[in-house]
Design a protein around this nucleic acid. Structure first.
Length: 488
RNA sequence: GGUCUCAUCGUCUAGUGGCCUAGGACACUUGGUUCUCAUCCAAGAGAUCGCGGGUUCGACUCCCGCUGAGACCGCCA
């Protein structure tokens, strides 16, 4: 769809009924990319018509996560715009006007059926093996009958009259689509309490906000025909629809929080994932550039994105790959950036304090582990040895195929070498330590493992020379001395 | 049950009739680098392209059927 139309307007319309979902994030991303690709407008609209389930904290979560991911909106909450307000709960009058119009034109009608009656009807249909569909009990109620029911204060919903014909549209991702409207009954657009429902509000707002393209999950594909019918009833021009494949659990069921971490903030952000990695990973789930390239910044994604290359089959969310990608971004990040971001994940008071009071040292410590972590939250445990005197079993000091006596020799020799060394630098350290090992008839492994263990107290850690350098001569000698004391 | 969608290595995917003895990435295995772990590098294993029919000189690619998976059929969105 080579489009040079500069007036593309897309929207992301989440409902604040739960923590911002990773699947929603992908829908938002694809809309954002599509808009930015064509210098169009990305609108954020909050669909909070379900007052029972909508919560302010979830609105905040949506906004925070979107911003965190770098998916900023051109129109919407906080920034406003020509179609304000962008909360559906503040647009009730507009929906009411449309409903009134539909009612006046007899394109919609009041339905007095009670929930119990409807449930019974549906169960009977399913029992017969028929499609569950409203039979239209109230569709042709006489005015007198309506007046009587209204006088009796019988609650009513409002249904849109579906005329049974074929609805065709061209889906941007799936291609030509056709639905038989005979198969669905007149659907409810307004609850008995007068509040409007999704199919209505969504359609009305897309029109009011002059949305040109609707990119949303495949789960809305079947609804599209109804919305097109409704739009026609309201004399609206329907936007172009494109339905994205869904993200699945490993067992191929629809991605759900029961089986998968789905909250962008609680499960990903707080676990130490990077927004760059999430954006990159999500973009690749259902889209590819047509080359072998896999690493893209958000900006590069905008450049490369094309709706034609969005595929149409559901995809399982692969945590391993996301984790790998997160590690990739961590490794390729400027250390200062990494240190700044990792500092937000510190939990130990001593390390927190040190990161503030000795930023240079903290930075060096972080640089030690940059290649060794996949999550920001892992930094602390990896660098802890730099800030806290290690505690470990003396056995750790003894290298493979070595013994206690040789280990003791190694420590003594190392102490001497480090004390004498002229320039306390990475290169000199290596030369000195290897030389002294040789001089004492020790293998490099025996010397290096032992010193590293004395310094870190860990079976696995950054390399000994770097650690020596970061810790500094005094601290290193101190730790080697206390290691010596562990050996009798 | 009806309607719709989808179907290539375990996973994400490339592939638009001959370049495919099917390419890349993650995961996995092995080797190299090495003081450990990781990184990095190299190699390997892994897909009779869901199944069955067609069309064609030729099909992963087109058509039909089947099977399987998913979505929708709410006074949720």
């Amino acid at each position: 769809m080579a489009n040079d139309n500069k007036s593309i307007r897309v929207r992301f319309a989440p409902s604040p009924t739960g923590q911002f979902h990773i699947g929603s994030a992908r829908a938002a991303l694809f809309n954002f990319l599509y808009a930015k690709k064509f210098a169009g407008t990305f609108i954020l609209r909050i669909e909070d018509t379900d007052r029972q389930r909508s919560e302010d904290q979830f609105v905040k979560d949506i906004l925070d996560c979107l911003l965190w991911l770098g998916i900023g909106w051109d129109e919407g909450p906080q920034v406003g715009g020509p179609a304000a307000p962008y909360f559906q709960s503040e647009r009730l009058a507009m929906y009411q006007k449309c409903v009134d119009q539909l009612l006046a034109e007899k394109k919609a009608y009041k339905c007095f059926c009670s929930p119990e009656e409807l449930t019974k009807e549906k169960e009977a249909q399913q029992k017969k093996g028929a499609a569950p569909k409203y039979t239209g009990t109230c569709r042709d109620l006489k005015p007198e009958a309506i007046a009587k029911l209204e006088a009796a204060k019988k609650p009513f919903s409002i249904r849109f009259k579906v005329d049974g014909r074929k609805v065709k549209f061209d889906d941007m991702i799936h291609g030509p689509m056709e639905f038989d409207a005979n198969l669905f009954g007149d659907f409810v657009i307004t609850r008995t309490d007068g509040s409007p429902l999704f199919l209505l509000t969504n359609t009305v707002d897309d029109n009011a906000m002059q949305v040109t393209h609707v990119l949303r999950g495949d789960d809305h594909l079947s609804n599209t025909a109804k919305q097109i019918l409704l739009a026609e009833g309201l004399n609206f021009l329907s936007p172009q629809f494109g339905h994205l494949p869904l993200i699945m659990n490993p067992d191929r069921s629809k991605l759900s929080k029961r089986k998968n971490p789905v909250s962008v903030s609680a499960d990903y952000r707080q676990s130490g994932y990077l927004p760059e990695a999430i954006v990159n990973y999500l973009a690749l789930l259902g889209w590819n550039p047509g080359t072998d390239r896999e690493i893209f910044t958000l900006h590069e994604l905008i450049e490369e994105f094309s709706i034609e290359r969005v595929n149409n089959s559901n995809a399982i969310f692969d945590h391993d790959k996301l984790l790998w990608m997160n590690g990739h971004y961590i490794r390729h990040m400027a250390v200062g950036d990494l240190a700044a971001r990792a500092s937000e994940f510190l939990t130990q008071a001593a390390i927190k304090k040190a990161s503030r009071e000795r930023p240079e040292f903290f930075l060096q410590a972080v640089s030690l582990v940059q290649d060794r972590i996949k999550l920001l939250s892992e930094v602390e445990e990896h660098i802890a040895f730099c800030f806290v005197t290690p505690e470990y079993d003396a056995k750790l000091l003894i290298a493979k195929k070595s013994d206690e006596a040789r280990t003791k020799t190694a420590l003594t020799a190392a102490t001497e070498a480090l004390t004498k060394i002229s320039a306390y630098t990475l290169d000199e350290l290596e030369v000195a330590l290897r030389a002294t090992a040789r001089h004492h008839g020790l293998t490099d492994g025996e010397m290096l493992w032992t010193v590293r263990a004395a310094l870190t107290g860990l079976p696995a850690s950054p390399g000994v020379f770097e650690v020596l350098e970061v810790l500094g001569r005094d601290e290193s000698l101190k730790r080697i001395a206390s290691a010596s004391k562990k050996l009798t």
